[in-house]
């Protein structure tokens, strides 16, 4: 699916630069090892301002999802309805990333299934992490 371009800012530049190299990095506190996403200038747990970027395995599981039928972003409206899943990273299931789950039919999202990261180009060429289902271990998807 098309995505708006991304203009990296100071806080997120390492994340986006890594994505351009097809690597997934997450901010990590040097002092207490806490992972945090979205990134912040300081550690949200211990307050340390010494944070680094740590490379992740690119593996995770689908925690939850919704199906967007009325999207506020014009660029995406042609593709409605579409999945937006919440992926939890294998390294730390408290860390979430969104995904359109390319390859997964609309509203057939296997909650709990394993996923792996891929990288897609956005409108201005900036690469962005996306996720693909690699197993079918989920519990199946009717949300409500």
């Amino acid at each position: 699916m098309p995505k708006q371009g991304v203009v990296p800012d100071d806080l997120t530049r390492p994340f986006w630069e890594a994505a351009n190299e097809h690597r997934l990095v997450i901010q990590s506190c040097v002092a207490c090892k806490h992972l945090q996403h979205p990134p912040a200038p300081v550690c949200r747990v211990c307050g340390s301002d010494t944070v680094e970027w740590k490379e992740m395995s690119g593996r995770g599981t689908i925690y939850n999802y919704g199906v967007v039928h009325d999207c506020p972003i014009r660029l995406l409206q042609e593709d409605q309805p579409f999945n937006v899943a919440v992926v939890m990273l294998a390294e730390d299931p408290g860390i979430q990333m969104y995904s359109h789950l390319p390859g997964t039919p609309v509203d057939e999202v296997p909650v709990g299934a394993e996923v792996e990261v891929t990288f897609e180009a956005t409108a201005n060429g900036q690469m962005v992490p996306e996720w693909r289902v690699v197993g079918s271990s989920g519990e199946g998807g009717e949300p409500a």
């Binding site: 995505k3 708006q4 371009g5 991304v6 203009v7 990296p8 800012d9 806080l11 997120t12 530049r13 994340f15 986006w16 996403h37 979205p38 990134p39 919704g66 967007v68 009325d70 999207c71 506020p72 972003i73 014009r74 660029l75 995406l76 579409f82 937006v84 969104y98 995904s99 359109h100 956005t122 409108a123 201005n124 962005v128």
Partner: peptide, 18 residues
């Protein structure tokens, strides 16, 4: 309605969630 998003906002806004 724009073509680009700032990096921080893009971490959640790129996926078009209402």
């Amino acid at each position: 309605a724009g073509s680009d998003l700032p990096g921080t906002a893009a971490l959640h806004a790129l996926w078009g969630t209402p």
